[in-house]
Design a protein around this nucleic acid. Structure first.
Lengths: 236, 236
DNA sequence: TTGACAATTTGACGATCATCAATGACTAGA
DNA sequence: TCTAGTCATTGATGATCGTCAAATTGTCAA
């Protein structure tokens, strides 16, 4: 078992080392990885890469929160994905056309582990199990995007916002007493295009749902009381 | 080169044999495949697999047209993908959770090549290049779904319909004189949920755009005159 | 041909949402 | 502290689209 090594590793939550995509790799490859990746810190608001950049390999969030946005010619953008600690970034361009189609920007002070493309190529080629894991991650991405497509044509704005918050709470929320809370450093604009509406609409939506007791936004944090969880899960 | 062999193959347009996902595989693997897959015919309306079925391996459309739909509890459905000749079906569940999340149904009389799961597992494990190609196909799917997500929140219905038709025409249309035409055996309901509107709205949309000379629907065929192509490309 | 059934079209209405505009809140920098 | 700038909120308005209902067309089998 690798447990002892893992706990000594300076980078917790890191998929490059434990518990995620690289896990099935044999010992030798793990050694390669412990030597072969680098770490960097990102300030809030700093970009990890820009849309249009060539792929630089694979990244993993070990701390913080990264937003992946596609930028449109008219200056607007669409938030495509939130990457929490433990999640891999860059696999789409690594496996595909090698060009980033999104910009990656830190929503919180973050730490990133990265494997350079040449190393990542070598590792993936040498370990089909790693490639299989990356493919599984792609499937997950497909599933999530499909859900978003389906939701946008079958559910109301209210339901879409409720579903989004429920999912994020489930995956990243902290239970505290009779309510769940989580960091959510997203602007109204980000929230708006996550469910496909305008910022003004989102503003009104949040106010309405807050006054109905579904949840409570305070700064960069959200709280959902138990009653709110039930209401939202029931699709009311 | 495999050209000579390909032309003798009974199954043209088939990714299991030529020009697509299996292409980079070495000669031995091609032999495995020429022996290892089976063919079947589907009548119009017949299903290849149902939502919820366990994955049976990989399929490839060699003739016809397959619609992949996710069915919702309320009886409605959303058209997620159209698979034309040469395209692989079933890779999502093959690489992922092994359960089909869509129903695959023939929109036209179709022919399908299939590799059983056990064989597909063996082939993919033995040939990382094949797995890489499947991963690339996943990336393509991610890209297409992202486009759909972005379109649903930034473009008008009119533009979304125009974009859809332009893309399909580009990939599958037949140029004939000063216009392009193609088979499009989709109901108004299918068209409607491809761009996320109600059937009634689609009906009105089609009538309006037809009267503006963008295109012409006749039965299961669409025609786009050169002027229509220009108008639609210009996002008017 | 007839009848039954489904798909499509059309009309009318109302709810929703995007848009425009104005205001307020907050932040960063001078 | 002041100011500029960005983001968020709120109001008013109009366009769009979903919904319901009815009529029309198309399809298939008896």
């Amino acid at each position: 078992m690798l447990g002892a090594q893992n706990s000594n590793h300076p980078c917790r939550n890191c998929a490059f080392y434990e518990g995620s995509v690289w896990q099935p790799v044999d010992t030798r490859s793990v050694l390669v990885l412990t030597r072969g990746f680098s770490r960097q810190a990102l300030d809030e608001g700093q970009t990890l890469f820009n849309q249009g950049d060539k792929n630089q390999g694979l990244f993993c969030v070990s701390k913080g929160l990264i937003a992946l946005r596609t930028l449109h010619p008219d200056g607007t953008s669409t938030l495509m994905r939130l990457a929490y600690p433990g999640e891999i970034i860059g696999f789409r361009s690594f496996l595909g056309d090698r060009e980033h189609r999104t910009e990656a920007r830190a929503l919180l002070p973050s730490r990133i582990c990265s494997v350079e493309q040449r190393d990542a190529d070598r590792i993936v080629r040498g370990n089909p199990a790693v490639l299989e894991k990356l493919a599984s991650r792609c499937v997950f991405e497909i599933d999530r995007n499909r859900e978003r497509i389906i939701a946008s044509s079958t559910k109301s704005n209210k339901q879409r916002l409720a579903d989004l918050l429920l999912r994020l709470m489930e995956e990243h929320g902290d239970r505290a007493g009779d309510h769940v809370s989580m960091q959510l450093p997203l602007s109204r604009m980000d929230l708006a295009d996550l469910i496909g509406v305008q910022p003004e609409t989102m503003s009104r939506l949040v106010r309405r749902l807050e006054s109905d007791g579904f949840f409570h936004f305070s700064g960069r944090e959200v709280q959902i009381p138990a009653t709110g969880l039930h209401k939202m899960a029931a699709n009311q």
